[in-house]
Design a protein around this nucleic acid. Structure first.
Lengths: 245, 245
DNA sequence: CAAGCGAATACAATCGATATTTCGTCCCGA
DNA sequence: TCGGGACGAAATATCGATTGTATTCGCTTG
């Protein structure tokens, strides 16, 4: 089953990759994990040195990321890491809930045997994977499976556009999670939440599944929001143009 | 009020433009107007000659367009005009109706004086502009105002993400309209449709406005669909790799 | 003799180094 | 103190070199 997504946002790098794509995936990963300070400038020269590629591939990668909303592009002035703010996060979450609700309802309405299987399998692997690594760092494999699980839920919605949009918003949400360093091992039982969503979806209980899903997203958002606000407290001054570490 | 859109899809080129951006807007325009055969390969060399720029700017522009779903990018093999099909159009329309409905409902729920004014003004100019030029060609100014009008309707939805997604889908729909050469001066009274939508929206009649809006979109889609199918009839053979004119 | 496989060739995308343009800043003069 | 011009840093563009892919031609084999 080839994954030729309609809009350009597949979840994993292709096998045969061009150099520009390699840089794209690396930089994307760094952006999603909050490795670069929001609002800071990303100089081409820096990226060239950091990722070991020429200016052309780097520039291409940055253009793609700008189209996805991970970078800001100012003509003749270069690229900047997309800024974050509490307001933006609330707007993001709101939008995400709207779209995911629609996608999930459609998915349930058009459920197939195949769709059910994918959810069951995704939940299975998610349940058998550690949320955090020993060091308290997020487990990349869990992140991937988490993404797969949520993708499986809405896979039957019959709109690749909607799926693409949801993925894009999910990426943004992930970015906020990592930037805010939220989820520092709270008492939250994420697996139970996922199980709840899956169970209700598989039962065909659209209202229940949607309710569970949105509570799941809103809770995550709330935690990020709190962490974000406490991080923004220290200095109220907006700081711009701080180069990446 | 600056229009720094969140996702990268402003409706008009910026004043101070880089060469890559110039190519981007020109090529985008050509793609939206169906000037290039769907599924045909767009060679970098061709674009270089056609738009009078170097390979790097062209390549950048193409990467951006690929992210927006107007081009397909195959690593190491170049770019292709995104293919069209009846199925794709139906999927597109479906998604568009979902998102526009949500956006319009939210917009009406959060309506402001400013929002009302913008709609009234947009409708005014739209009503005073010719749909077609003398030659039966679509009037670019009307296209622009049409876009502005539909943008104004959902402008108060409090989600730049949703607005951006709607714009992206609107662009795709426009592309289908032009490719199918639909709307060949049918007996349709588009102005009345727009008036109807605006009136109901301004009255706060969400259900009525949504109904009118979706009928509007579905009708457009249906016309494109018919024209598309009649165009696909002549030769059932899928033809690939036909260079652009 | 036809079909299939393989290597060589041609074409096009990709890349890196260099040149050019632009923007921001600092300094000087009014 | 404010306006204008020059300097420097950085983005942008061009060009030539490289790499990768598709095609074609020729050979082998059934």
């Amino acid at each position: 089953m080839t994954d030729t997504s309609l809009s350009d946002a597949p979840s994993s790098p292709p096998a045969r990759s061009t150099l520009a794509s390699t840089v794209y995936w690396q930089l994307r990963d760094d952006l999603l994990h909050g490795a670069l300070e929001p609002n800071s400038k990303v100089r081409v020269e820096w990226a060239v040195a950091h990722y070991g590629a020429g200016a052309s591939p780097v520039r291409e990668a940055m253009n793609r990321l700008a189209s996805e909303g991970l970078l800001e592009r100012h003509d003749q002035r270069g690229f900047f890491v997309m800024p974050v703010s509490a307001d933006e996060l609330m707007e993001l979450t709101r939008t995400r809930c709207w779209l995911e609700e629609k996608a999930l309802r459609e998915s349930i309405a058009n459920r197939t045997r195949r769709w059910e299987e994918e959810i069951v399998v995704a939940l299975h692997w998610l349940s058998r994977t550690q949320r955090y690594l020993a060091a308290g760092q997020a487990n990349p494999e869990w992140e991937r499976l988490h993404r797969v699980f949520h993708g499986a839920l809405i896979a039957a919605c019959r709109s690749r556009w909607l799926i693409g949009f949801c993925e894009q918003l999910a990426d943004q949400a992930r970015r906020y999670r990592h930037i805010a360093r939220a989820g520092g091992r709270s008492d939250r039982d994420e697996l139970a939440e996922h199980r709840d969503i899956a169970t209700k979806a598989l039962e065909g209980d659209a209202d229940g599944a949607v309710d569970a899903l949105l509570r799941h997203y809103r809770l995550t958002s709330e935690l990020s929001l709190q962490a974000l606000r406490s991080r923004e407290m220290p200095d109220a001054r907006p700081r711009r143009n701080r180069g990446p570490a």
